[in-house]
Every structure is written in structure tokens, then in C-alpha cells.
Amino acid sequence: MESEPRLAIRGVSVRFGGVEALADVSFEVGAGEILGVIGPNGAGKTTLFNTISGLVRRYEGEIHLDGRPLRGLPPQRIVAHGLARTFQNIRLFKSLTVLDNVLAGQHRHIVETVLDSALHTPRYHREEALATRRALQVLHFVGLGATDPGALATSLPYGAQRRLEIARALAAYPRVLMLDEPAAGLNTGESWELATMIRRIRATGLAVMLVEHDMRVVMSICDRIVVLNFGRVIAQGTPAQVRADPAVVAAYLGDAAQP
């Protein structure tokens, strides 16, 4: 790749006790690219996500975001470096409203001191007004423009909660977006709408990395795919290359043809 990759994973290995969850995993994600990570259950996809986002702190190898090493940083510092993620089982802030969930995503972009917060100074009003406008734009973008921003996040239907979680991640204005099974639990129509949305996210120049079980979604939107099995990368390439790879067929598509 000629320019610096947004996210570079080089020789990453993670052990839990005696089990090797990830073994020498290497790949890169560039700007304006959608990278899919697939593999059978237990292949290490979630561990990979947790390692990149700083929830797993002990690993070998290097992870760089925009050329800067992430080793040793706690999750919130990694967010500050430009990484945002969603979770496989939606983790919205359940006692916050839709609007507040998106504002929470903007945490690092709102400039208020404790005094501003306590006394509602002019700067507080300025910052909150700007953050609210930004939040509405994000909600609009993910297709929640017609939703009441004052409703509790958990009162939304399931599909809308998935979108809201993506909105919260986008509100952090990340450089890399990681989606952990965004289509899980969605029906066919919702899955296609989601695919369209992820393409629109790519069009803004973001690097998108996603773990997904729905092969139709993965194959249709990903520019490149990394296949994991037992913690190792067994293939990577375009969807067509991966689909034709005999190792993939044997390890993954062969025995686990279910979507």
C-alpha cells in the first residue's frame, strides 16, 4: 500500500492461560476501505476486536493507528487516537435518551470544564448547542432522523438500537470504525439497509472493519476479507479470492455453511 494504512496489525498474538486465542495475526485497513473479518465461532474475532480497542491489554506484536502505536493505552485513550467500536450484543446506555447516547459518543469533542458544567456558563451553552446539532446530523445519517431524540434508548426497536449504537460510535468522529456483528438479529431488509449505510460510511473516507456472520452482507460490501481460524489468519484477499481459497472452503465454508 502506497500511503500509510489507517490501522496496521502486525504479528499480534494473545494467550489466555494455555490457549492461544490469536496467533501472529497481521493485516492492514486503509482509508475508504471496508475490511471484513470472518471465521467460525471461536476463531478469535471478538478477541481481535477487544485487543485493538484496548480491552485486552496483554499481547505480543504491534498495533498502529495512523502510524501511532496503541500498546499499553487504556480504551479511552485509544478512542482519543481515533478508534470507535460497537458491540456484538448491543451495549447502549440504557438510562440515557437517544440524544444523550450520541452526545456521550462525542465525549472527547465537547470542551467543558467542571465549572462550565456546574454553572452552565455561556461556553457550556455554546458547546452543548454545537454538540446537539452534530448529534442530530449523525442521527439523520444513520436513518434515525425521525426518531424522538428524547426517547429512552432502550425504548427503540431492535434494529433502531443497532443504528443508534453505530451513531454513538460515529459521533466520536473516529478514523477507524469497528463494527462487531452489526447485522446480528436483523431481518433481510434491515440487513440490506445496514449494508447501504456502511457503504455510505466508507464514502466519507473512514476505514471500516467489521466482524459479520451474514455472508451475503460480508461478500457484498467488503473490499477485502481476512479469514481467521483457531486464532490464525488462513486467508486474506478480495471476496472472490477468499471464496475460491480451498483452505477457507475446508475450514469454514465447508463445515459451517450456515449463514
Partner: peptide, 24 residues
């Protein structure tokens, strides 16, 4: 405000709060 939202985020889900950039 920002700080109050961060508190409620921590109460609701510490992991998601950290993943949203909040220093728990």
C-alpha cells in the same frame, strides 16, 4: 452536561463508557 452524562454512562455500562472515550 458532559460530566453528568459520563457518570450515567459509567453507571449503565463501564465497558461501553470506556469504549466511548470516557476515563472511567
Amino acid at each position: 452536561s458532559r460530566i453528568g452524562r459520563a457518570w450515567v454512562c459509567i453507571k449503565d455500562d463501564e465497558l461501553a463508557a470506556a469504549a466511548s472515550g470516557i476515563a472511567v
